[in-house]
Simulated assay, not measured.
Amino acid sequence: MKSTTTLALACSAAFLAQVGISSYLPAVPAIALALPAAEDRVALALAVYLVGMALPMLLWGSLGERFGRKPVLLAALALYGLASATIPSAFNVEVFLTLRLIQGFGAGGISVMARVLVRDSFSGALLAKGLSWLGMTFVIALGIGQFAGSRVQLAFGWEAIFYGLAIGSALLMMVLQRVTFPKLLKADSSLPPWRIYATIARHPPFLHAALLGGLGYGVIIAFNTCAPLILQGHFQWSAAQYGWLGWPISGAYLAGALMVNRFVARTGRLTMMSWGVALVLLGSAVMLLGSVFASGLAVLLWLPYCVAVLGQSMSYPISLSLANDGAPISGSYAMALSGFTHQLMAAMIGGVASLLVTQQASPLALLCVALAGGAWICVARCKADQNALRKISSI
């Protein structure tokens, strides 16, 4: 029962952190008009948020190990909520981006603690299943959050999106005050935090699995960075139409997460992860072909992307569980380091994608193919790592 409660709280926290990525996307043109600023500068808010999530993640992990999960999660929620409530008062794009960076700081702590709570409650294939629930939360935030953001913008203006995030943070803090978390699991090492992180990062079974998850995540970040201008510019979609796209995206991610939750113990983590990365590569390749040979059809952009999302939702929780299981030191450090790696990669990929922002889809599709190809190489490395570990354990 405690594991179920902890999982529900972890999913709620993860939702709040991830909805900061997607909920404002339909409002990018409106925010650009209000500040005022060019749309490509406002589009940097996604990369800035991801940088904010990534930078303090290792610190959040160390604090969680030292002071406990609950106080650190409450602190991260407070920072996130304060920044969210302040964003609507931004009077130029520089202040807007600065506040998004601070909001990302809080989101990074929330994300790390959510994963650590799941890690504290599960292990092995059950950990992959538990992380798949976080994956379902991610897609709700990614897709339905995008839809809800478009509805809120149309009804109350873009500022209400960020006020809503602040209210959500406050409500979750009130709930957490009444909950007792699982017993703190201390890392089995007396090394200082930076040495622990360095030891984990150099371990191939952790590194390859973490890189795989980050490359697949980058496909989603690249699309979210470029898609608003492509679909609302080249294809002349309204903010409401763009918001509706959240539903098929949500359905694709939910389907993949459910498949992991149901079949991973039976199929095996490596097999299911391979299937997922293959779908990411397939969807990205079809996006590229569609952008070259049928650039006037929006369906050849968003539908293959949904296929890629399906694959990513299958591979991501498994890669995260493999990275955690492959870490040579236990505790919250492996989860913090994998989160840092993913968010840093996402920020870099988001920055590259923002340089490619155009009304044409081919640069975006080419970037997605490159990322998916890199993930496929990491699959081979993960299989080699697992084979090596099995040989060592059999000696």
Rank of each mutant, 00 (worst) to 15 (best):
W247A: 12
P71L: 09
N92G: 12
M174H: 08
P29K: 03
T271S: 13
Q153Y: 10
Y24L: 03
L303F: 14
I31A: 09
G373M: 12
R381D: 04
G124A: 10
A265Y: 03
G157A: 11
A372L: 07
C226F: 02
A160Y: 10
L131S: 02
F206Y: 11
A388I: 00
T358Q: 12
I377F: 15
E159Q: 15
A75E: 05
A107H: 04
A43L: 01
P88D: 12
Q232G: 05
C378K: 04
Q386N: 12
V93D: 15
I220A: 08
A76Q: 05
A346H: 05
L258G: 06
G216Y: 01
L282Q: 01
V379S: 11
F223A: 07
S189G: 10
L254P: 02
Y24E: 06
A114M: 06
A78F: 15
G256R: 04
A76L: 04
L258A: 13
M345S: 11
L270W: 01
M259T: 13
I31W: 10
L9R: 03
G81A: 11
R262W: 15
H208N: 11
S12C: 14
E159L: 00
T225K: 02
L344Q: 02
A285I: 07
F223L: 04
L126D: 15
S393M: 12
T137G: 15
V93K: 08
T271E: 12
T358K: 04
L310V: 03
W247R: 00
G326T: 08
A265C: 01
A201M: 11
V369T: 10
A34R: 05
L16I: 15
A375E: 10
R262F: 14
S169P: 09
V357S: 07
L16F: 13
A114S: 15
G214E: 09
V48A: 05
A198D: 10
F223S: 06
G276M: 08
T199I: 00
V264A: 09
L50V: 11
S394L: 14
W302H: 07
S238F: 09
L279E: 02
K129P: 08
R381V: 02
V357R: 13
M53Q: 14
A294G: 00
L337F: 13
F223K: 03
A210P: 03
A187C: 04
N324C: 11
L344M: 15
T271W: 09
V118S: 05
S354G: 09
W60C: 07
A372V: 04
H342F: 13
A388N: 14
L355T: 09
G130S: 07
G64W: 09
L207G: 03
L99W: 14
A294H: 11
A353Q: 10
G311L: 08
P193W: 06
V118N: 07
V116W: 02
G276N: 07
M113N: 06
G143E: 12
S123N: 11
G268V: 06
V299P: 00
V286P: 06
F235W: 07
I200K: 06
L389V: 03
L322P: 01
P29F: 07
L297Y: 14
T267R: 12
F147W: 15
F293L: 13
G296C: 06
W133I: 06
N224R: 00
R195K: 15
F105C: 09
A370H: 05
A370T: 13
A308W: 05
A209D: 07
G256Y: 04
E39T: 14
A76E: 08
V286W: 07
